[in-house]
């Protein structure tokens, strides 16, 4: 239970910037699509939306991994020792990041389907 709690604390530090940047990306779809003529030709059926769920999910995965790298591998490397002392290895923290990111994106997609 304590390990699970520690993983959540680990993830929160990545989650906040990831949500902000991914949301901005998702809202920028109609502007970005216009800049990518090839992509818009391929997906002529898909009209640029105010909020693109597809872009949100893709950018959420990318930025969760990118912020993990920037925050823990570059900026606060030594914080790994806190998690090591709780029996969490670097590999288990990367895997936890992927699992939690998958859970969050899945919940977002399900809520989107239900309510929108």
């Amino acid at each position: 239970m304590k390990q699970f709690k520690a993983v959540l604390f680990f993830y929160v530090k990545i989650l906040i910037p990831t949500v902000i940047i991914s949301t901005l990306f998702a809202f920028s779809d109609r502007y970005v699509s216009g800049l990518m003529p090839v992509a818009s030709q391929i997906s002529t059926q898909i009209k640029p939306e105010l909020f693109s769920l597809r872009l949100f999910v893709i950018s959420f995965y990318c930025f969760a991994l990118l912020f993990h790298y920037i925050v823990y591998e570059v900026r606060y490397k030594n914080e790994y020792y806190f998690y090591y002392n709780l029996g969490l290895s670097k590999l288990s923290l990367w895997v936890s990041n992927l699992i939690l990111t998958s859970i969050i994106t899945t919940i977002t997609v399900v809520l989107w389907i239900i309510f929108i």
């Binding site: 604390f9 530090k13 606060y76 030594n78 914080e79 020792y81 806190f82 090591y84 002392n85």
Partner: peptide, 13 residues
């Protein structure tokens, strides 16, 4: 348990 020589406590907890 291991205490590294540099600070290791997360600053957001």
């Amino acid at each position: 348990s291991y205490l590294p020589q540099h600070h290791f406590l997360p600053n957001h907890i």
